[in-house]
Amino acid sequence: MPFLFALGQRLLQLIPVLIGISVVSFLLVQLSPGDPIRLLLGDRATAEAVAQLREQYGFDRPLIVQYFSYVSNVLQGDLGRSIRYQLPVESLILDFLPPTLFLIGYVVAISVPTTVVLAIVSARCRDRWPDHLIRAAAILGMTIPVFWLALMMSRLFGVELGWFPVSGYGDGFVGHLHHLFLPAISTSTWLIPLLLRNLRAALINESESDYVTASRSKGLGEGYIFRRHVLVNSVLPTLNLLGVMIAFLIGSSVVVEIIYAVPGLGTLMVSAVLGRDYYVIQGLTLFYAIATVIVTLTIDILSAMIDPRVKL
């Protein structure tokens, strides 16, 4: 039961974070220089109409009252209304969510196996040419602007060679796989180096530890030691990093989605920002933050299950 107790404590700690998230997303709209009512009604609206709508939306009430009504709306699943689409923000988010989720899953499915293989090769051939090659490629991958790579690949593989579609989401599972291939590859090019450098360092660090020397002195084979001891012990730091990176991916898929015209959350976010659709920005920011909190929590629970020494 200590695990459940620790889990309960961890969940309690989330409460101040969730309150903080709601305050930040609430203030995002409150502090905006523009007047959302003016945006709703246009510039030529009469003063009475503005005042009436202000009252209707509750903007004339004290900030703290507005915050509590915002929180109670959010708890009931009401994130406000998009000015541009004239639809509830929560249903917009649900409409645009599947392509983004698919893309993130796709990226993880490409990145994780590639990272593991490359990191193992790199660590086992340390300071020899395969290692140098992989590390140089990793540095290059980290410095490529993802949106630029996406654009260049869409031109080369999409337009020039015609292997992949350059926009949209496609139909059915295979269609999604085909349509999102280039976006997923572009994003992986950036993600793999980060994970790779981390896993390589962990592998090298573990292979220099005392228990490895002890295993060697017992006469165990290098391959056996590597598989049974080094690799297993190096998974945890990379799992933690992957959690952080998934949270990061949620955000950085924004630009890639724009380039490949994937109808995902990133496209929704950018169009909301450019169109000053405040409630969509607010709702999405809140949604992203809660998604990140859930991912982080899941990774923490997984780590604690894998390694009993890790405290939740």
Binding site: V17, G20, F248, G251, S252, M269, I281, L284, V293
Partner: peptide
């Protein structure tokens, strides 16, 4: 808790 780029876009927006 906020993805870096999302919050940057939101604030700049």
């Amino acid at each position: 808790a906020f993805p870096f780029f999302v919050l940057v876009i939101a604030i700049v927006g």
